[in-house]
Design a protein around this nucleic acid. Structure first.
Lengths: 150, 150
DNA sequence: ATAAATAAAGATAAAATACTCTTAAATATA
DNA sequence: TATATTTAAGAGTATTTTATCTTTATTTAT
C-alpha cells in the first residue's frame, strides 16, 4: 500500500476532527468507536500528530484531542509526513540507497516525476476543505460506512 | 514503499536479463550474486514470473532463466502486476473496502487520477528499453553499484 | 552414471508493521 | 481531598513481510 495503516488512521482522524469545526476537545475513545479503530492504537497515532503539533490533547475528564491551528491549515501531505515520514517522496523506486542525480537507477527520472505528482496531490488537498466536501456529499471515512458527518 | 521488495527484485532481475539481449538461459545463482539478492528468495520470485509466462526456466546443467517473448515485450506494469497484483491500482487510498463511484471516500477522485499516473508511468516504460537505456548510461540496478551491464 | 541446475515445499528466523495491555500522570468534579 | 475519567507512555503480543536454510524431486548435459 502507498500509505501505512497508521497513516490512513491518522488521516481519518484528522477528517473526523476537521468536520467538527469547533474548538472543543473530542474524546479519543468515542472517536475510535465512531471510526472503528482500536482505541489504544489510535491513541498512539494521535500522539505522533500532537508530537508534530498538528493536534493538541488535553488530559483528564472532559479531555480529548483537537486540531491545533497548524493542524487546521494542514494538508494531507503534512499528516503523511508526520506519520510515515518523507520516505515515499525521497526513496528510489528500486530501493537503491545511493540513487540520485549522480548515480541514478534506470527508473530515477520517471519515478521522480510520478512521485512529485503524488506529493502534489497530497499537498493541494487540505484537511478542512476535504472534510467540508465530505460533509456536504456525505462521503465515507469508515469501512462499514458507520461514520456520520455531523 | 510503493512496491514490495519482491517486486523490486523481480524488476531488477528483469532488467538484468533484458540487458543480456540474447536467447540464453542464465544461471539464477549467478544472477543472485550479481544483483546481491538471496538466491532462494530470488528463485521464488522468478517462479512467480515464470508462472505468469514472463520468463522461462530450463532445468539441468546449463539451465537457468530467460525472458519469454511475452517477457521481452513486457512493461514494468506487467512485472508489478505479476508480483504485487493489482492492489495498488484498485485499492482506495484510505483502505476502505467498498470505496467506489457510488460510495466514494473523500479522496476517491483525487487518488484515482494520481493512481492512474503511476500506472501510466509503469505502462509506458518497457523492460527492454529501460535495460538499453541503463546499459548505455551505465545506470545502477544494485545497492552497491556492483552490477555491470555487459 | 554423475554432476549440475532449477522446482517445489516446508521449516525457521529476522524485521517491520499492526495491534493490545498495563501503569502513570493529569484534571474535573463531587 | 478522593474519585473517576481521560490521555501519555512504555511494554508486550501478533501478524505480515522478508529472508534463509534444508530437503527432495526432476531434468539434462556430459
Amino acid at each position: 500500500m502507498l500509505l501505512s495503516k497508521s497513516c490512513v488512521y491518522g488521516l481519518r482522524a484528522s477528517l473526523y476532527l476537521a468536520a467538527k469545526r469547533d474548538e472543543e476537545y473530542h474524546s479519543i475513545r468515542k472517536m475510535s468507536e465512531k471510526l472503528d479503530i482500536s482505541f489504544h492504537f489510535l491513541t498512539k497515532i494521535l500522539q505522533q500528530l500532537t508530537g508534530d503539533s498538528l493536534m493538541e490533547s488535553y488530559t483528564g475528564p472532559k479531555g480529548g484531542i483537537r486540531l491545533s491551528n497548524k493542524g487546521k491549515k494542514a494538508t494531507l501531505l503534512d499528516v503523511v509526513l508526520a506519520i510515515d515520514g518523507p520516505r515515499l517522496f525521497t526513496q528510489c523506486a528500486l530501493g537503491l540507497p545511493g540513487c540520485g542525480v549522480e548515480k541514478p537507477c534506470p527508473l530515477h527520472d520517471s519515478w521522480a516525476v510520478t512521485r512529485e505528482s503524488i506529493k502534489e496531490m497530497l499537498q493541494r488537498t487540505d484537511i478542512e476543505h476535504l472534510a467540508e466536501e465530505g460533509k456536504n456529499s456525505n462521503l465515507r471515512i469508515t469501512a462499514n460506512g458507520s461514520f456520520v458527518w455531523q
